[in-house]
Design a protein around this nucleic acid. Sequence first.
DNA 1: GCCAACGTTGGC
DNA 2: GCCAACGTTGGC
Length: 158
Amino acid sequence: VSRTNQCWLMKSEPTVFSFDDLKARPRSTDHWEGVRNYQARNYMKQMRKGDLALFYHSNCETPGVVGIAEVTREAYPDHTAFDPMSGYYDPKSKPDNPRWFMVEIKWKEAFLRMVTLSEMRKTPELGGMKLLQKGQRLSVMPVTKEDFEKVRSLGMLK
DNA sequence: GCCAACGTTGGC
DNA sequence: GCCAACGTTGGC
């Protein structure tokens, strides 16, 4: 992780879009559509090209971080909000005044093993992680460089 | 601006 | 499937 880049955590339900799904995309790259929460949106707008994100599988049998993705394109309008056929349609978001945004991310590296939510909870150094705070449900959130590196090192332990 | 009702998230 | 902890909506 470079000095200038920020770190993030991004959640996805693996039955909807898994880390392997991202890897399988052309150039292992895809847009991160469907964020419909203002706080998460605002965090996405702060993302810069080259930022790294922990890729987290949520709402599944064993939730946890499975690898790392890199931001390859900064926030631009989420076109699924304009599409009445999309499950992410929001009539209040207009092409000339978009309400929702997405970024583009690229699969970067898979952990050797998943760092589960329960393992993170048991790791004292990670106690400050936003992810672990009570009641937090954001799908996009910042992670300190220290926590990012700690999670990564756990994921690279065999 | 308040707040009740409702919808969503996501661990368990 | 349950339910706590949110966020959003809309009447007033």
